[in-house]
Amino acid sequence: MPATTTPDRGRERLELRDLRRSFGSFNALDGIDLTIEPGEFIALLGPSGCGKSTALNCIAGLLALTGGEIRLGGARIDQLEPERRGFGMVFQSYALFPHMNVRKNVGFGLAMQGIRGAEANRRIQDALGLVRLESQAEKLPGQLSGGQQQRVAIARAVVIRPPVVLMDEPLSNLDAKLRLEMRADIRGIHDQIGSTTIYVTHDQDEALSMADRIVVMSEGRIEQIGTPQELYQRPDNLTVADFMGFRTRIPGRVVSVAGSEAELDIEGGRVRATVRGAIRPGDAATLSVRPEDLVATPGEGIPATVESMEYRGRAWFGLASAPDGTRLYFRSGEALPRGAATTLTPTPGSALVFGEARA
Rank of each mutant, 00 (worst) to 15 (best):
A335G: 09
P346A: 07
G355H: 13
T343R: 08
L352H: 07
D324C: 13
F317T: 03
A359F: 14
A351H: 08
R331F: 03
T342Y: 08
A357H: 08
V353A: 04
S321P: 02
A351V: 12
P337Y: 02
T345Q: 11
F317Q: 09
L352Q: 12
L319P: 12
L344S: 05
A357C: 12
R312T: 01
T343V: 15
T326N: 15
T343D: 10
P337R: 04
P337D: 00
G349Q: 11
E334N: 13
E310T: 07
A340I: 00
R338Y: 06
G318Y: 02
D293T: 10
R331H: 01
T347A: 14
E334T: 13
A357F: 08
T343P: 07
F330I: 03
L336K: 04
E292Q: 03
E310F: 11
G339C: 14
A315M: 06
P298S: 15
L328N: 14
R331A: 05
F354V: 09
E300A: 14
S332M: 04
S332G: 04
D293N: 13
A357M: 08
E300W: 12
T342H: 06
G325S: 09
M309H: 00
F354G: 05
V353Q: 06
G313Q: 01
V353M: 06
E292I: 04
A322M: 08
F317D: 07
T347K: 10
R338A: 15
G301Y: 10
L319D: 06
L319M: 12
G339K: 05
T342Q: 15
R358F: 09
A322L: 08
P337H: 07
Y311V: 02
T343L: 13
G313E: 00
Y311C: 02
G355A: 09
R312D: 02
G349L: 10
E334D: 12
E356I: 08
G349T: 05
A320F: 03
D324N: 06
